[in-house]
Amino acid sequence: MNIGLTGGIACGKSTVAAMLVRRGAVLIDADQIAREVVEPGSPVLERVAARFGQAVLLPDGGLHRKKLGEIIFNDASARDDLQNLLHPPIRAIMKERMQRYESERPDRLVVVDVPLLFESKLEWMFTEVMLVYIPRELQLRRLMRRDGITLEQAESRLRAQMPIDDKKALAQIVIDNSGELAETERQLELFWRERGIT
């Protein structure tokens, strides 16, 4: 069995992923795969540099993430171009790893951590989608505290993603992470038992 795990920025998705792994799940991290596909010398990184210019490369040939982020953050067209370059190879690797883990370990839950799962319309890849949810106001507060940014900056980052309540309406499993960690664990225990995961 597999699930797609998603959330909004500062909702605690990484915390929930770690809890699932402690229970015995196998984790595939889309962000980690995204880093792998743009390693120095990779064809994907070459295509990114061709589209956005040599300024997005560090002197050692690696990706200058901050510079690329500055280019795409407030430009939807540039963001779309980047996604069109990155998403196909990332999806191919995700799919290959999911198939491999499910055949090697059919008794284990395979969790695929995909931050922009709904935005990328990847629901079709998973048996179910689990959303780590907190209300938008709490999301703003946690994001400002976590990243040391202003309310205006936090609002801007949230606007770049699908609203958390829209995601909530699309997910089959919602884990409310707005309270104590023990409460989050309790919800995961219930999910684990309901699905009969060993």
Rank of each mutant, 00 (worst) to 15 (best):
M1W: 10
T6S: 08
A10G: 02
V16F: 04
A17L: 12
V21A: 12
R23N: 01
G24Y: 13
A25M: 06
V26S: 01
I28C: 04
D29Y: 05
A34W: 04
R35M: 09
E39H: 12
P40G: 05
P43R: 10
V44C: 07
E46G: 12
R51S: 03
F52W: 00
Q54V: 15
A55R: 08
G61S: 05
L63Y: 02
R65P: 00
L68R: 01
G69S: 09
I71L: 14
F73G: 00
D75Q: 04
A76Y: 11
R79N: 08
D80P: 00
L82R: 05
P88A: 13
R91N: 12
M94A: 03
K95P: 00
E96C: 13
R100L: 14
Y101C: 11
R105Y: 15
V111K: 03
D113Q: 04
D113W: 09
F118W: 12
M125I: 10
M125W: 06
F126E: 08
T127F: 06
V132N: 01
R145F: 15
G148A: 12
I149C: 05
T150K: 03
T150R: 01
R157T: 02
L158Q: 05
I164F: 09
I164S: 05
D165R: 02
K168C: 02
A169N: 06
L170T: 02
L170D: 02
I173Q: 03
D176N: 10
S178D: 12
G179W: 10
E180L: 15
L181M: 11
A182Q: 14
E189L: 09
W192R: 06
E194G: 08
G196Y: 05
